[in-house]
């Protein structure tokens, strides 16, 4: 899994490429924990390059989401592939997370909504 982190002011974008499983999720957890420790207010995760995700990936996002909620931070997931969306559906978590169809929409969502 490749993870690229870019920051634009208070917006932090994580672009993920590859497979998110029990082997690769600790690396993502580390990056998200770094942002949570800085109380990053806006985090956008671009998932269009993720073609596989298991429950370890879901657990990583649930943990990051809960941490962000504690300090009123926001985590938006964008451009889920069909496979990744299917995993969120089985876990019935689509309604819990903020999910955007595109990165552009995710940026707008984070810019507008308080």
């Amino acid at each position: 899994m490749k993870i690229q982190v870019t920051s634009e002011g208070d917006l932090h974008i994580l672009e993920l490429v590859g497979e998110l499983d029990y082997h690769s999720s600790p690396e993502l957890r580390e990056k998200l924990n770094e942002l949570a420790s800085k109380q990053a207010s806006k985090v956008l995760v671009d998932l269009k390059g993720v073609d596989y995700m298991d429950s370890s990936g879901i657990a990583t996002f649930v943990e990051a989401f809960q941490k962000a909620k504690r300090y009123q931070g926001r985590l938006v997931l964008a451009e889920l592939t069909d496979t990744v969306r299917g995993v969120f559906e089985i876990a019935k978590l689509e309604s819990i997370f903020e999910i955007s169809p595109t990165v552009i929409e995710a940026r707008e969502r984070l810019a507008v909504k308080a």
């Binding site: 990583t60 649930v62 809960q66 876990a91 019935k92 309604s95 819990i96």
Partner: peptide, 9 residues
Amino acid sequence: LPRQKPGGL
């Protein structure tokens, strides 16, 4: 479900 704690899925 939805499970809002990490793990157990």
